[in-house]
Design a protein around this nucleic acid. Sequence first.
DNA 1: CTGAAAGCGCTAACAG
DNA 2: CTGTTAGCGCTTTCAG
Lengths: 336, 336
Amino acid sequence: MVTIKDVARVAGVSTATVSRVIHDGGQVGDACRARVKKVIQELGYRPNTNAQALVSKTNHTIGVVTPKLSMSFFGTLASGVEHTAREKGYKLLMANSLYETQSELDAINSLRNHNCQAIILHSEYSDEDTLIQLAKDIPGLVLVNRYIPAIANRCVWLDNQSGAQRAAEYMLAHGHRDFAVVTSIYQNRDPGIRVQGLKSCLEGVGLKLDKQAIAESTANIEGGEQAVKELLARGVKFSALMAYNDLMAIGAIHALFDAGLRVPEDVSVFGFDDLPAARACRPRLTTMHYPIEEMAAYAADLAIKLSNPEFKPGSQTHLFIPELVERNSVIDHQES
Amino acid sequence: MVTIKDVARVAGVSTATVSRVIHDGGQVGDACRARVKKVIQELGYRPNTNAQALVSKTNHTIGVVTPKLSMSFFGTLASGVEHTAREKGYKLLMANSLYETQSELDAINSLRNHNCQAIILHSEYSDEDTLIQLAKDIPGLVLVNRYIPAIANRCVWLDNQSGAQRAAEYMLAHGHRDFAVVTSIYQNRDPGIRVQGLKSCLEGVGLKLDKQAIAESTANIEGGEQAVKELLARGVKFSALMAYNDLMAIGAIHALFDAGLRVPEDVSVFGFDDLPAARACRPRLTTMHYPIEEMAAYAADLAIKLSNPEFKPGSQTHLFIPELVERNSVIDHQES
DNA sequence: CTGAAAGCGCTAACAG
DNA sequence: CTGTTAGCGCTTTCAG
């Protein structure tokens, strides 16, 4: 390994000068600078980031903690962070939290040990107090997809409520009156809010969402299938099916077809998230676009700013709005 | 920041002892160890990874370079690496190469600066010489999804040829005789090999794949749609459509339906990769499963081994075989 | 404009 | 079993 000393020796200067050249400090003579640069080139010298980090106490690294990188949503999130990281010359450190409180904490600690000052966290299972404490300890911590009032200016989140309402309005506008819902068994956060948004909208026009018309299962394709089967078994009648997310919507479409029902002719289906899969299924899914890549890039930018000791956070909040993307899974209600 | 010195001072021992406790060296008295541990706990001390890395010249970090993390395939790859990393106590450093030779090199360099000794690279555009040179410079470099004979023992790759043949045999066994292909415009590597595998299999039974029956486009959903449109416009007749990958297959299914053709009744479609989207589309896609997560985990393991100076690589190769997963997009050829 | 020197936090001989 | 000591590669005053 070639070190700064080697460069200094070969170039006949001190290590301080080499360091200056590396960092483009204006304090070096042109001839000298040129010579050093040449030697760096020739020797193939590359500064040791660890040593730099040790002394300067910052290694320009941004960490991301998500449940599972292989899921499209989280991969896209990571990609958004990567975009900002690249732009700002930061490196990206990743860790899966595996949907578990303890491994989530482990992941965060591992990043902290690494001197990672900016951390983007997508936390689903840690409780608010833990997160608030964490935010205190880590100035550069930003939460994505979660809103905690006490640390509002560290949360980059989505307005699920209005998104769900917007979806419901759209269905209503298409003449649908009989709604059913397939949602996640974890009725804690997002799922609950989205269902709530739907309900409030329906109530606004004098409609009621019967408890029977809500089926819960896991938030994936299989869950969507299973939930629809249950709905059908219950004998629930509906022309409009709202899914907690795209995956469940896709599963629902499968189950509907398998039961001899056509989508969208017999049942219109509405998703949420706008995953790549939403354009893969047939009919293509009408859904709310979750701008996760944009949000993640934004969050990364925010985290980097916050990690700077000079920076004092304001009281600004960071709320994003999902956007309706019309495709082919919803049509006007057909009288039968 | 609390350092090892603080701990040593408070515990009334030397930093060496603290270091020993941290690393579970057996050379510390029980009472002493307990005391130090307690102090570490109380002070909330966490070792500075950068300093550790600086002195021990290894920071237990594994790097991954893929074109774009937001794509399901690469997210899954990263997840596979993460699995091994977690298991072995390594951290995961990520960098997108953005499908570009230069940024790929930048990404690798950025990892190397970071003292990252194990690197998993999914390279599509760098030429072999560059890669061979890189492999020389970086003992812990492993290539995924690419085979270069000169560094065969550093390549973890898939037998595309036999995979394509297996797919073709399956189609043949289902009575199909009229084949068409939608493939990527980049006929350099995988796409070329897969088409080749198909051709050789067809020729084996006296069938010929007409040049007209091959349509090229981009390797995504839109590309699949466009390619099928072209096939149709050319007036090509086929009951079996082989796609370069799942994305193109899904686009093909869309275009087929849009043209009034039913899948699989009129045309059977075969994918490749087995992305999550393959279970989202309708009909669900029959495809070859690309065990990328498993391969990535394996590659990570290999990279870590290789990065150990003690380890001398054998001449073993690392070839994986794709597996056929039967779903609903292929059925027996229907006489019309 | 450039060099000398101190030290970042930690590990690893080497003594004792 | 434990402490002393010498750096790892780099940045950064402080002098010159």
